[in-house]
Design a binder for these strands. Structure first.
Lengths: 208, 208
DNA sequence: GAAAAAAGTGAACATCTGTTCAAAAAAGAC
DNA sequence: GTCTTTTTTGAACAGATGTTCACTTTTTTC
């Protein structure tokens, strides 16, 4: 696909790539012209159009400055490869609107790893899940969902307070099992209005 | 150093970062203003100046459009804030050249989280570190280094085989301690040529 | 060599972009 | 409360930038 490019066109492409690499943003047409020793921006303009037709160059919006990027270049806008995920210090009432006050920051995570669903990162407080090898200070990747299966590790609101527990549905009640031998399970009647499932744990991040 | 930023200034910084991440080039002042719901570019202009004075923002040349970049992200200009990290299935002889045959794939990770050093991801086999809450199948973030301190979790080559152990330097020998009560420590004479430290564990990724 | 395509020029124009200024609103500090 | 700092607005301006046009030069193709 690169074979039907002329020498000049390849030169322009290479100049764009180098400029982006060195400066962190794409060049303007006149900057490109000067870089290639040309006197007018019009020639570059024509060249960029033909490069666009051949599919090797793209621009996000017409008319905007510095908006060209090379197709297939890693430096190009990689929508989809990674996504920003907010770090929540504490789950608070009003979820899943993710109260902004509790935002610690955000991490960009690989979409291949966390998937496309609505997620956030929750910092673990305490040792209630130590038998599941989840430690104090770990970050949990939480997927917002109401549906979960027996044995899932979930985040639940229980009377305005958030907890991480393993979920089991029993006959007339729900059992929330802490993964810590020294702690007792919590039983929820089926009709408890103070109980609400926020989401389930899909992954874990730990920093040493 | 980030502590003397106002809330608004931090908001502006975050908007710049996100725009750069999504589009591959920095925003103009008016684009920023619209993004933040402001009516004029002048406010943004003043804000960028103060951010510049505080040293968190820089521009390559005055007067040029879209030429601002965030100081923390400047280490990898144009590469955004994530970096590709190879996933290694097994550590093999010949490291740290990271034999390509063993590459399982790669994940893009947040530079804020993994830092700028040379790293790779190693998949854990077995349960030798279960007492350190590291499970079979976890991915370890390994920083390539020869220097490590007592108590560090390290990756070491021992007679052509890779192991994950906790590192302790004793009088005339090195003790490699498995974090599993049922396993015995390994002792290495100080002059063992078959022993080599690959790196140390900086983080952990787990998927449920 | 003739014809066609590609590359380049120079000028003009509309819009975008950064910058400045005066003033007002909002938020904190005291 | 008063005062100061921060934040926002609106307008205006200069220069930068993308675009178009007519035309010339160079290169390629037949």
């Amino acid at each position: 696909m690169d074979k039907d490019l002329t020498f000049k066109q390849r030169q322009v492409l290479e100049a764009i790539r180098r400029f982006q690499q060195e400066n962190g943003y794409p060049p303007t047409m006149r900057e490109l012209a000067e870089l290639l020793g040309m006197a007018s921006a019009a020639g570059i303009h024509k060249m960029l159009l033909s490069l666009q037709e051949k599919g090797v160059l793209r621009r996000r919006e017409g008319g905007k400055s510095r908006s060209y990027h090379i197709v297939g270049d890693e430096a190009a806008p990689g929508r989809g490869r990674t996504r920003p995920c907010p770090i929540i210090g504490n789950v608070v009432a009003g979820m899943p609107e993710l109260a902004v006050e509790e935002r610690e920051g955000e991490l960009y995570l690989d979409s291949d790893w966390v998937g496309q669903e609505d997620i956030f990162l929750l910092r673990v407080r305490g040792h209630s899940m130590i038998d599941a090898d989840i430690r104090d200070g770990d970050l949990l990747v939480v997927q917002l969902t109401q549906t979960c299966r027996n044995g899932d590790i979930i985040i639940a609101m229980l009377d305005e307070e958030a907890t991480v527990k393993r979920f089991y549905r029993e006959k007339e009640r729900i059992r929330l099992q802490p993964e810590n031998q020294t702690m007792q399970p919590i039983y929820i009647p089926g009709d408890d209005p103070g109980f609400r499932i926020i989401g389930k744990v899909k992954g874990l991040l730990r920093k040493y």
